[in-house]
Design a protein around this nucleic acid. Structure first.
Length: 887
RNA sequence: GCCCGGAUGGUGGAAUGGUAGACACGCAGGACUUAAAAUCCUGUGACCAUAACGGUUGUGCGGGUUCAAGUCCCGCUCCGGGUACCA
């Protein structure tokens, strides 16, 4: 029978849909459960590209396999549908973003269904649906009403926060201020990049070197905007320790650890000469205090103005202005040439009471530590560079552990920077009573930190790179904050019962010129009056796209519940997510934010697990071939012709190099899954996506490769659908061995997400079966089951042709029998000094001695051994024989 | 610069420290066909050699550990991703 994939695929997709084959079981008594999740997509107008089906196919195979293994499987799909493109389109055309979004979702849903993925479509969710974002807003209320108890390392309801009496005495305003300062969500000014042309806040990476916006080329400016922020750094420690139990790729854990950026050190207070202020610095090297010869504060530091003396004001102000104009990248670029100005003021070094000058420089950042540093040029490369440029003193306080005496001399004289370990010198002062001379780094840090703490001059301190999360956008198409700002300055949140707060319908979606969200123009929606006549305005910022994706896995558990965020019993059954697959581009942000929310919900008793995603896997990017000339000029794929495996320019005939690059319109190398499905069918697309290589690596799409798996499916179908090939009676032992081998191999490979080798094992079996020409009906049925997670349409069709009337989706996964896998003989590779020379077939039961004797009796061994006597003979049973000959 | 990942035939890739190149693409030859496509069969790392057998070499580069290294260790080169002076 010919392999008519179009007909087969249409037929079974309809069957699955009509019969709701993949509806999640309601019976929660089955102890075997598996929650398998894809990172849900943003439904762009461009439709699916071949990168999407990679992860989706992987989870689909895993889901189908787990069902056959008797698991209750939860495998849902939905849309992360808030986002800029729909809003931009609305600005241009006036079409409401929900219309665009729904159209895009329809396209995505159709395309995904055409791939035969076994989602439970009854659980589809959409982050832009008010029934969904009602609960996103609900979580925001929780964040706002939670504080972090550092002692218990746990989030707690704000009602449990004790306000100190000293604050209480200061009155209502101070109490509110205190409470607000402890909430996980707070409202504050934040300095952000603003593009006046696009009327949008830009991220650092969107701002180019020359200070222009990468999207429009216009100059951006720094703007202070009122923003919602989330105190994620409070959870830094929990986010770090949570990794321990998780089955995540080590590299991803490492990237998140680096992002959180824990560092230990000390905070040290410096008093300021002539002012009743102190300057606190964070340092990882309190041991180098004696080497601190100047200080630097960030231009944005709140004390900069106070510290600057009259005669220096002009210079400092000029410098601050210049800094504000630079993009962050610019600031770092100029870092090669460090810049800074003297404030005219001096600080007192607490260890020796020496006066050291205070400078302002943009290499010190406000966002990290305390925004001020003590500079130790002799032992910090940045400080060394800066001191060199501005002729500041360099005091070496550590005799370096270095063998090179010339280098040692340079370091001691302050002509070279030393950041490694060594023995302290010049590090004592009788007047303050501290002496660490002779100690090494570790001991020095300990001693001086203790000394600082005993004198109340500083304390040990852990610092994180992780910063507060800027959690608002000046956009229309996002979740509205359930927040009202009253005329008297009070901020209140809507009551739970008032949710969801809908987005108003508008005619114009353009943001305001001043950085205000388009919502500021929705007068009817915006202005509110309470029952006492007090006037207020709703929050006009909306939440970032992260909000919806931070918790969607929880809603899938009980997506239609309109009474609660989800049913706790069902949550307890399904959580945590057992397998989570998505692109590595979300390695840090999405996963970190999502873990943070989850931990807050856990602390509040809303979810039952501390971590959301037990096992994580990142699929690699799919690239495509592209072509370039000898000189490296890129040639669009439609201008390239292939002859005898080589590539030539269609016009001038010059030979081109095949390279691997990202798919892009300009290179004309974008692959659309619809084209592949049309030509080869969904099963072939699925199979090729998996056969290309390991799931986690970056790999190029090759249309020719699809032909390979298409050929395999065609051969398989023709062979197993032909009654002449299916016989009764005993199975051929070789076929039986092959069959049980493939069951075992595919099973192990699916568990380890190594689908490429599973497919090649199936190819090997098919090659064997076709060579034999005949298999039993039982073998055919078993192989059909093994193939079914990979090529489900074809497998259902074969299953049907084999006389079955029900779907095979819930058939039991075949069990392999080790007995059939046993070999009688093993073909030993025999090597001499590690070089393989020949093979010899011997019974597996042979002892080492028997093996050696059998090999020595072989003519070929005599040839390689010659007259020499082996000094050693290594026999690894059923693996290798190696003769060691010394010459 | 730093962090993470990678480098194996013409191509994608396979290989618990134990026969490097499974499986597939491509290519070459053959069968079928008036012909092509499709399908099927055979060969295919490179080099040397042959009537045939065979041999040498080979996993980015240089060292090392080991009876044995694509795999482990040290030092590099190049490529991809992330990040931007993190005190």
């Amino acid at each position: 029978m010919e392999y008519n994939f179009h007909e087969i695929e249409k037929k079974w997709q309809k069957y699955w849909e009509d019969n709701k084959t993949f509806k999640t079981p309601d019976d929660l008594t089955n102890p075997k459960k598996c929650y398998i999740l894809d990172m849900f997509p943003y439904p762009s107008g461009a439709g699916l590209h071949v990168g999407h089906p990679e992860g989706y196919t992987a989870t689909d195979i895993y889901s189908r396999y787990k069902r056959m293994k008797g698991f209750n499987v939860l495998h849902p799909m939905g849309w992360d549908a808030f986002g800029l493109p729909a809003e931009q389109y609305a600005i241009q055309t006036g079409t409401h973003p929900s219309v665009t979004t729904n159209n895009n979702c329809d396209t995505f849903r159709r395309q995904i269904k055409e791939l035969g993925l076994s989602y439970d479509w009854d659980r589809e969710i959409n982050t832009t649906d008010p029934k969904y974002f009602k609960w996103t807003q609900w979580i925001f209320l929780r964040l706002y009403n939670t504080w972090f108890d550092e002692g218990l390392q746990k989030g707690r309801p704000i009602s449990e926060l004790k306000v100190p009496d000293t604050i209480r005495q200061l009155g209502k305003n101070e109490i509110i201020k205190y409470i607000d300062s402890r909430r996980l969500a707070y409202y504050d000014n934040a300095l952000v990049w603003w593009c006046p042309n696009c009327r949008i806040v830009c991220s650092n990476e969107e701002v180019l070197n020359d200070g222009t916006h990468e999207k429009c080329g216009n100059r951006v400016e720094k703007k202070n905007l009122k923003q919602w922020m989330l105190r994620i750094p409070l959870y830094a420690e929990r986010l770090l320790t949570g990794f321990d139990k998780l089955e995540w790729p080590e590299g991803i854990k490492e990237m998140q650890r680096n992002w959180i950026g824990r560092s230990t050190g000390a905070e040290v207070d410096f008093s300021i000469d002539g002012l009743n202020e102190k300057l606190t610095v964070f340092t990882t090297r309190p041991d180098t205090l004696f080497g601190a010869t100047y200080m630097v504060i960030a231009p944005e530091h709140q004390l900069t103005e106070v510290i600057t003396t009259g005669d220096r004001k002009e210079d400092v102000e000029k410098y601050i202005k210049a800094t504000l104009l630079k993009s962050d990248l610019d600031r770092t670029d100029l870092a090669k040439e460090k810049s800074g100005v003297f404030t005219g003021r001096y600080a007192v070094n607490p260890v020796n009471k020496k006066l050291i000058p205070i400078w302002v420089a943009d290499y010190v950042l406000t966002g990290y530590g305390t925004g001020a540093i003590m500079a130790v040029p002799a032992h910090d490369t940045r400080d060394f560079e800066f001191a060199g440029k501005f002729s500041l003193p360099i005091a070496c306080i550590q005799d370096p552990d270095v063998a090179d005496t010339e280098q040692e001399k340079r370091i001691l004289e302050g002509n070279e920077c030393w950041t490694e370990d060594g023995k302290y010198i010049n590090s004592s002062d009788p007047s303050t009573g501290i002496d660490i001379n002779g100690l090494n780094k570790e001991a020095g840090i300990q001693k001086i930190t203790k000394w600082l703490e005993s004198r109340n001059l500083g304390k040990a301190k852990v610092n994180y790179k992780l910063r507060d999360w800027l959690f608002s956008r000046q956009r229309y198409w996002g979740e509205p904050f359930p927040v009202i700002h009253w005329e008297d300055g009070e901020i209140t949140l809507l009551d739970e019962k008032e949710l969801p707060l809908h987005l108003p319908v508008m005619e114009k979606y353009l943001p305001g010129e001043t950085g205000e969200s388009p919502l500021a123009n929705a007068d009817n929606w915006l202005n509110v009056t309470d029952n006492k006549g007090r006037k207020g305005r709703r929050e006009t910022n909306t939440m970032p796209q992260w909000a919806g994706s931070c918790w969607y896995y929880l809603r899938f558990i009980d997506p239609k519940n309109d009474k609660m965020i989800f049913d706790p019993g069902q949550e307890k059954y399904w959580m945590p997510v057992d397998l989570y697959i998505g692109g590595a581009e979300h390695a840090v942000l999405h996963l970190l934010y999502s873990r943070f929310w989850h931990k807050v919900l856990y602390d509040l008793g809303i979810v039952s697990t501390d971590e959301p995603y037990q096992r994580l896997f990142n699929q690699g990017m799919i690239l495509a071939f592209a072509y370039e000339t000898e000189s490296g000029m890129k040639i669009p794929a439609d201008q390239v012709v292939e002859r005898e495996g080589k590539h030539y320019h269609i016009e001038n005939g010059s030979e081109l190099r095949q390279i691997v690059a990202k798919m892009s319109k300009s290179l004309k190398n974008v692959v659309n899954p619809d084209d592949v499905t049309l030509k080869y069918g969904a099963d072939s697309l699925r199979l090729y996506e998996m056969f290309m290589g390991p799931l986690d690596i970056t790999k190029p799409w090759d249309d020719k490769g699809v032909k390979g798996v298409f050929g395999f499916l065609g051969r398989a179908f023709r062979f197993f659908s032909d009654p002449e090939n299916i016989v009764r009676g005993e199975e051929d032992p070789e076929v039986l061995k092959g069959l049980h081998h493939v069951i075992k191999k595919v099973e192990g490979d699916i568990e380890n997400l190594r689908f490429n080798t599973a497919i090649s094992a199936m190819m090997i079996f098919l090659n064997l079966a076709t060579k034999k020409g005949k298999v039993t009906g039982e073998t055919a049925a078993t192989f059909t089951k093994v193939l079914s997670p990979f090529a489900p349409h074809m497998a259902e069709e074969l299953w049907h042709l084999q006389g079955n009337t029900k779907t095979l989706a819930y058939e039991q996964w075949p069990r392999y029998n080790e007995e059939f896998l046993k070999e009688d003989n093993f073909e030993y590779p025999v090597s001499f000094n590690g070089k393989m020379r020949f093979n010899i077939l011997l019974p597996v039961s042979f002892t080492k001695e028997e093996v050696v004797n059998a090999v020595l009796a072989d003519e070929r061994a005599k040839k390689w051994l010659g007259s020499a006597t082996p000094s050693n003979i290594i026999v690894v049973p059923n693996r290798i024989v190696n003769f060691v000959i010394k010459n």
